[in-house]
Design a protein around this nucleic acid. Structure first.
Lengths: 103, 103
DNA sequence: TTTATATATCAAGATATATTGATATATTGT
DNA sequence: ACAATATATCAATATATCTTGATATATAAA
């Protein structure tokens, strides 16, 4: 029940829905990609990513000074059905803006 | 998006999860059945039922002085998958206590 | 028509969640 | 070692949601 509520709570927010869909569409991205694309401050993005990760939707892979987030795989049936439903929403997500300072 | 968030918001609450599952298990029940079974005050139950109804999970049928709530049918695939997931949770719901004053 | 039961809704206070700005830590380049 | 970039987390504030108690409406029985 607690895990279910954590999962549901994680998608009960417009910003997180957009971030989740953004990652679903663009694949692996780092925090500053999202920060730049969404034009939101870093602490806000970081916090939402943590919530989505703790809810089982995302995994993080640290390489160098970057943290790369992507959809966790394999994803169970229920979370898959949620991602599918989200992908059907008419949601306005920004274009990927890759502008980390060093390649 | 707004409808999705309303749907998700409606199940982002322990009390509503239990009420929803209770109705799924017991079938059509009236507000005071739930009130008595859950030992919660009427205004609280009534409010949660309205949220679940507005989110598309429940329908209400008024007969006499009673309002009978049940799972809305047919239910779309997404809401069905949510109900299925909820039914798998190890959730503690009370026994049905039918004690409306007049039959 | 008076009374009791069933339900819905509102306002106030309590609780939870989101946003911001500041700060801390880690990595890399100079 | 120092500076810059990337990320995480904390504290304060803002915003949203939940609970309660009071009140309003409707139906039915006496």
């Amino acid at each position: 029940m607690d895990i279910f509520l954590k999962t549901i709570g994680s998608i009960n927010d417009e910003t997180r829905l957009k971030i989740l869909h953004f990652i679903d569409v663009n694949g692996e991205v780092c925090v500053c990609d999202i920060e730049k694309s969404f034009e939101m401050i870093q602490s806000r993005i970081s916090r939402h990513l943590k919530i989505l990760k703790d809810a089982g939707f995302l995994k993080v892979d640290r390489r160098g000074r970057w943290a790369y987030y992507s959809i966790r795989k394999p994803l169970d049936q229920f979370r898959q059905s949620i991602l599918k439903e989200i992908s059907c929403l008419d949601m306005n997500i920004p274009l990927l803006n890759k502008s980390c300072k060093v390649g």
